[in-house]
């Protein structure tokens, strides 16, 4: 009995892994590119979700993403740091910034935190535009193609990072961190009285989130070969980071990933249809999710669809 249940979960997982590993051999360059940008978005979505588990709703992930992107690109440009090391450096610098930002925003709750994170990303745009000698300004920074333009290698690298994010989230869910994060999210004052140091866990969640978001930024800069402030610090990036997990289902491993797949598909369709404004889907989805499916797709699946399927054999 126990082993049959195990098979039910491990078999599909094994098939999924095999599929992901073989994917580059199965498709052409366009779909490979879609997969790379999709996986990048999944990393951003899951990282946002890690932070959100402590009740901190960031609308400024673009700030951390941009810092990772620029650190990595500038380190390459100035010191010829190899791209993968550059991504790691970008991740670490974003982590460092998050410690600083985390402590500063610690006492802010709810909406105040969110507004401050928006201001953080927007302030970075202004700083970047105004200090072109250091940052490259509005002209941006360019780098040669990652791995000499070998998309397959890029795919495996970003897939490995996604695997790392999923592993970290899984570890969080198995550990006492899960209790600390949930308690802080649900009632910070009560958590505090029960012996949980909210500062410690909020900053920790911020750091983990920033590390992967920064890495994703570094990857993006090399993969895309060209970054400008308006793009990497853009509100659109921050919005994408939050809509995907909210759509899929918060505080789960599968939710952010599922949400990303669907939203990316919709977005790709809209990108072909309209030259501007394809993020309209993000706004619409956000509104609809809050109004009609507050637990996202997974919640819908568990609450409405699963029972539907289950009730059939009984009839």
């Amino acid at each position: 009995m126990g082993s049959s249940i195990r098979w039910k979960t491990t078999l599909p997982l094994a098939i999924l892994c095999a599929f992901l590993l073989l994917f580059p051999k199965l498709v052409g360059s366009y779909f490979l590119h879609l997969a790379v940008s999709g996986i990048l978005a999944m990393i951003l979505a899951s990282s946002w979700d890690i932070l959100a588990r402590t009740g901190q709703v960031s609308v400024g992930q673009a700030g951390l993403f941009g810092i990772g992107a620029y650190s990595s690109a500038l380190l390459y440009q100035r010191y010829a740091l190899p791209p993968v090391l550059g991504m790691l450096a970008g991740a670490l610098i974003a982590t460092f910034v998050s410690i600083f930002l985390g402590y500063l925003t610690l006492r802010l709750r709810g909406i105040y935190f969110s507004i401050t994170t928006i201001a953080f990303a927007e302030a970075l745009t202004v700083i970047w535009l105004m200090t072109p000698d250091i940052t490259g300004g509005a002209m941006g920074v360019s780098t040669p193609p990652l791995f000499g333009g070998d998309r397959e290698k890029a795919y495996y690298l970003i897939l490995a990072i996604l695997a790392a994010v999923v592993a970290v989230v899984w570890l969080i869910e198995q550990s006492r961190l899960n209790f600390a994060f949930t308690a802080i999210r649900e009632n910070e004052d009560v958590a505090n009285v029960l012996g949980i140091n909210p500062t410690k866990y909020k900053v920790l969640a911020f750091m983990i989130s920033a590390f992967f978001t920064g890495f994703a930024g570094g990857f993006y800069s090399h993969y895309n070969t060209y970054i400008i402030p308006y793009e990497v610090f853009n509100l659109g990036v921050s919005i994408a980071c939050l809509v995907m997990p909210i759509f899929g289902g918060l505080y789960t491993i599968a939710g952010p990933i599922l949400g990303t797949v669907l939203i990316k598909a919709i977005e790709e369709y809209l990108r072909v249809t309209f030259s501007y404004g394809h993020q309209i889907a993000y706004g619409l989805i956000l509104v609809l999710v809050v109004l009609f499916m507050p637990e996202g797709l997974l919640g819908l699946w568990r609450g409405k669809i699963l029972p539907l399927f289950r009730s059939r054999p009984g009839r």
């Binding site: 809509v243 501007y276 404004g277 993020q279 309209i280 993000y282 706004g283 956000l286 509104v287 999710v289």
Partner: peptide, 8 residues
């Protein structure tokens, strides 16, 4: 969400 919708 409304804000993003209207912008786009």
């Amino acid at each position: 969400g409304l804000s993003i919708f209207l912008q786009n």
